[in-house]
Write a protein that binds this DNA or RNA. Sequence first.
DNA 1: TGGAAAACTAACCACGTGGTAGGTTCCGTC
DNA 2: GACGGAACCTACCACGTGGTTAGTTTTCCA
Lengths: 258, 258
Amino acid sequence: MTARKGRSVTEPRAHVETAPPEAVRQGSADPGPAGERPRPGRAARPEPRRETKGDRTRARILDSATELFSRSGFHAVSLRDIAAHAGLTHAGLLHHFPGKESLLIQVLARRDEVDGRLMAGPDARATPEELLDRAVAQVARNMRSPGLVALYVKISGEAADPEHPAHDYFVHRYRRLRRDATWLLGELFRRADPPVPHDPAVAARELIALVDGLQTQWLLEPEEVDMREVVLAFLAQLGVHPANPGFATPDRTPPGAP
Amino acid sequence: MTARKGRSVTEPRAHVETAPPEAVRQGSADPGPAGERPRPGRAARPEPRRETKGDRTRARILDSATELFSRSGFHAVSLRDIAAHAGLTHAGLLHHFPGKESLLIQVLARRDEVDGRLMAGPDARATPEELLDRAVAQVARNMRSPGLVALYVKISGEAADPEHPAHDYFVHRYRRLRRDATWLLGELFRRADPPVPHDPAVAARELIALVDGLQTQWLLEPEEVDMREVVLAFLAQLGVHPANPGFATPDRTPPGAP
DNA sequence: TGGAAAACTAACCACGTGGTAGGTTCCGTC
DNA sequence: GACGGAACCTACCACGTGGTTAGTTTTCCA
């Protein structure tokens, strides 16, 4: 509802054009992208570009944004809040990121990249049971990373508003989750003895919804909800079993200590 | 993070002291509270107080606040937005409600009152199966009232922030839901033949989480999620059966048409 | 009908917000 | 060490926000 007139937020900042933060960030541990130039006299062997002060600052900003968005959502957090938390001014922050919305998108993209996904699609290196294991382990890990839980809980609710900057991100995220979970549960149902007579598409929606809903409750009262226990109970009711549920031992940390 | 200095928001508005909006609202269809005075010459029989212009305005404000909070959450909606939507100025709105936070609390309280609760506790007039029926019917009804779904989805996420005005409201709401659902499922498990060997406390957390999580997905892509179907599938997996699932026929309305 | 109270507005306040522009300082490379 | 670009700051901008105050209009009731 706070529609700012005048300046378009889609205009790139001219002085970041040559090294967009996205590209730098993605390639920080890899050969540099467009900025890399072979040394004279050497074969064109790419060299790791050294991490710059700007890289470190951008990482700090993303950390701060992640933490504050996780705590209070997108709209209740200002650029000045994030900048102060990261140890610079809000104008300095805007040197690195073109605007608040793209900062959020990068926080989300980074989160996906760093923490993996709740649900994995076909993987030749793991059985479906092992993949289920990983999903359960991720749930348990979430209980040790309240920040991750809070970020998705906070932003996914807001993002149901079609005008929210992360709306499309979440629409696609849920599509992917449903697709992957449907495949995984379909495999597990078929391999069970006797085969499980449930519709994997419906069960996938159940599982995703269950995990999401548990996270909301857990954030409000962590001592009242053992997410792993509930997810394992649900899977048992479905008639599917992780390969090694013992691995997914929780080490519960209360929220507020991200 | 937007901490406004100076004025305390807890000070009541002096000119609303004699008829606090809460009291008036609660008693609008009942005998008036403190403001009621027996007619001279009559026994002290309470008479319905006539609905005033203010009552109607307050209702309009609450309608508008409900709609806008449902669409965009608490922080992204201003008092001026709500006031304009209700057809008055923001200062006029503040004549009726002491501040933005208490407005939100009243929106939530009203919503509980008008739409009932997802889960009901012991009721001598209904069997547990019938109570389950009602819960399923409520889920189906939610699909016809996107505003209700959106309100809770939007605000519950935000409210996980301990500083959010509705934080306590949701802590208590979930406690009540868990208590009631645990009782109901316990009864259903015991009455089943053979008795269902699941822990009703765990199953209660599953059910509540499932419904919450489904609502988030549904808001993002309503055509991809049939909440009623998924809830019925879940209950079937649990081994419990509503008395008459046929009653809970959905009439799906896409969100955006509250 | 008159008067008091309720309802409502316009104007004001202090502050916060995302973003811009110009200048200074720092960093990285040769 | 010199130089150019990156990093960062200060100051500014227009606008929005919740809330206050004084005045006006409307409603309600005796």
